[in-house]
Design a protein around this nucleic acid. Sequence first.
RNA 1: GGAGAAAUGGCAGAGCGGUCGAAUGCGGCAGUCUUGAAAACUGUUGAGGGUCACACCUCCGGGGGUUCGAAUCCCUCUUUCUCCGCCA
Length: 423
Amino acid sequence: MLQVPFIRENKDNVIKQLAVRNIDATKMIEDVISLDEERKQTQTLLDNALAESNTLSKEIGNLYKSGKADEANALKEKTTELKETTKTLNDKLSQTVDALNELLYKIPNVPHSSVPKGSTEDDNEVVFSEGTIPTLDKNALPHWELAKKYDIIDFELGNKITGAGFPVYKGKGARLQRALIAYFLDKNTEAGYTEYQLPLLVNEASGFGTGQLPDKEGQMYHVTEDNLYLIPTSEVPGTNIFRDVILEESQLPIGITGYTPCFRREAGSYGAHVRGLNRLHQFDKVEILRVEHPNRSYEALDEMVEHVKTILKELKLPYRILRLCGGDVGFTSALTFDFEVFSTAQERWLEISSVSNFETFQANRLKLRFKNSEGKNELAHTLNGSSLALPRVLAGILENYQTKDGIEIPEVLIPYTGFKIID
RNA sequence: GGAGAAAUGGCAGAGCGGUCGAAUGCGGCAGUCUUGAAAACUGUUGAGGGUCACACCUCCGGGGGUUCGAAUCCCUCUUUCUCCGCCA
């Protein structure tokens, strides 16, 4: 959520930059400012009334002490009136604050100046690509066929146990999953991220903290009995570590990594593009997350991009990096780079990582601050990225590494899998 | 799941319904002393709103109530601890 003082001071620029997302925020921004104005006025009136009633109460106390009960009783009548006033003002204030917040929840983050204009994913900018796309045999199969052929992922079984989108990994398939998780975690901790194991269910406050609530409620599985939500990404529990936290400047930067399954309802997604591992309700992901000083958060973003590149290079997968356009960049993000792996048999790019700088957008909701060199509390910047999401990496490996003898295992993974080929 | 106890500032820990945003200790910061450090001493040290700056207002786990006035009384929820039960 954007900060009101920031909106006030940069009104025109905010509107101009939000236009990159193809939204005309003029009215929303003006409403924010006028609601905030109203909030301040009401607050002042309320404060004055409260101040008066505080003074009166003290006087009454003193009068009682000095035995002047009559005078005290006279003053009491006055405070009764004041009570009415404060109640009315208080109601008005909370209405205004609610309206203001509701509006603020609807305004997305201001895109970074480098975010290109555009409306769909076709307008994303390819900024880097690496790796060679293998020439496969004409009998090459998409990963869901390979999964069946080598009996390593059973989609139907998952269907039976739970439903579509909950695959069962078997044998070498399961082992490969575990290998990938361990390998990613090792790479991330080597790069300085501290490993965490996080809860898979979060409460309402955490959902609000990272912005899944109130808007994207339908995307999460909700355990109504206990009012908990299954996490759609470890970003939620990971970032909420820092909810209501004031750090010392010397504690920055903070980098954490964690593996969790992720649960997404993906309501309204159907068709060929969601076949096999392309889109699941439950999938595994290893995440990296940073809390940074505002001065160097973009440097940190570059470091994260470089880090993910190293992993893909080691896995020898053909990939490219996109700078997301205004129409595609997430609600909370200021700048996002997506990584895509080429799925040779499907002949399409699959998104496997998304690395973003949220600047203060999340921190503002979380109240994540640090004491700056002047001793003032200042909002920190948060960033996160997948490093990496499993299913599509797996899809990429299965498809790109298939040979007539079986599926070869990328060399860096062999110490983790204990086998060299799936056949 | 049952019974009991508790929740106060970074931590520990006081707090007869008014003078309490809150004693005291520790920690943090600044200074004195010292070649430097430690010790000692002095001062300072929660968050948010508001203001040019003050004033002023709100916050003692969350929510509600009683009262002219609540950290203090009542209700409720949550969490923690102890005991019992169940259990990976």
